[in-house]
């Protein structure tokens, strides 16, 4: 597979390490009342879509960027590659 790195251009997937669902960005707020339940879902429950999937890849043999790759799990077509930091900020993460 080839991942079109937003900063470095097309790179072979062998340079990357795969983590999984980009929902891992959405770490729950530990201060809410049902935090334990939320962390359980965060830690253990994943969607497994046949089709478009947003997932985290780490450019370990490259610039060490975490990327959010939108990949079709049926065809392996990659429709979008973003810096995970940008995605995290857009999803409201900060300090």
């Amino acid at each position: 597979m080839i991942i079109n790195h937003p900063l470095l251009g097309p790179r072979d997937a062998a340079e990357f390490v795969y983590l999984g669902d980009a929902a891992l960005i959405d770490r729950p707020d530990p201060s809410v009342a049902d935090a334990a339940e939320k962390f359980h879902e965060y830690g253990y429950l994943r969607d497994n879509p046949a089709g478009e999937h947003q997932e985290l890849w780490y450019h370990e043999q490259g610039d060490r960027s975490w990327l959010v790759v939108t990949r079709n799990t049926l065809s392996h077509e990659i429709s979008k590659v973003e810096l995970a930091r940008d995605v995290a900020v857009a999803r409201g993460r900060g300090r």
Partner: peptide
């Protein structure tokens, strides 16, 4: 050593990108 570094980068870029 390698895995902790990877986790720290994940925490830095994905969990607390404002730091």
């Amino acid at each position: 050593a390698v895995l902790v570094f990877r986790r720290l980068e994940f925490a830095r870029q994905c969990l607390w990108p404002g730091l």
